[in-house]
Amino acid sequence: MIPAPFDYVRPASLDEACRVLGEAGDGDGDGEVKALAGGQSLLPLLRLRLAYPSVLVDLGRLEELRGVHDRGDHVFIGALTTHDEVLRSPVVREHAPLVALATATVADPAVRHRGTFGGSLAHADPAGDLPAVALALDCVLVTASGAGGREIPAAGFFTGYLETALEPGEVLTGVKVPKLGDGWGFHYEKFHRTAQAWAVVGVAAAVRIDAGAVAQARIGLTNMGPAPVRARAVETALRGVTPPAAGAGGGHDPVKDACAWADEGTSPPTDLHARPDYRRHLARVLTHRAVRAALP
């Protein structure tokens, strides 16, 4: 529980952060230079000696990476905004409710006061709740680096287990969360064993109803593979479906049929809490529940 030795720098500007991160950053293995945000994922790795970075670059002073901004067609969430700040933001609540719903399920209050929105995405833990949300909403991840900056669509950002499209020396500065407009309903269905535990499976659902039928659905799955996945088959199958009235009971439920595709194209992991066949089953059941709960 004691990390190996490392150097620590706390840059005063984004430029400096990019420079330091770019310097020794060969990207993998020992001697890596690592950005430090809330430390809620990185420090456990250091303390278990599962990571041996030579330098930690603390982003904590970069005020420009903090805060939530209403930018017309999207909400911009600074990478260093803590989960707790996200939860308290009226802008998020109004224009990006799915982000709020999922963030409320992250860990516990202590972790939410330190852990950051950007850190969760940059860490890309397959059991993390926010990557699936970013994917479902087609968020755009904004970065800075010595070479300038990029805007990376969520669909191209999560590349594998704890892997992202971020290059060495590249800092995630914030995330554009598109405002979806009227008629949408949202739900994040998290299945976990204790209140503070990570998701065994999670489902982020956004559903738009038009004239009583599903016009569009966006569904992201947590922990159904090394990276978050979109349940595209369900999204397609749901289009045009008329959900049965609440409490209709019994009978045929076309929403349920559509959600039976939820595990299509996933490669769920095995761990202490679930083997793949159970995860596939959960994905189907929970997607149905998430979609039903999301119906506006």
Partner: peptide
């Protein structure tokens, strides 16, 4: 994270 014990919330 692996050895789960119940907390008050559970």
């Amino acid at each position: 994270a692996d050895y789960l014990i119940p907390s008050a919330a559970d």
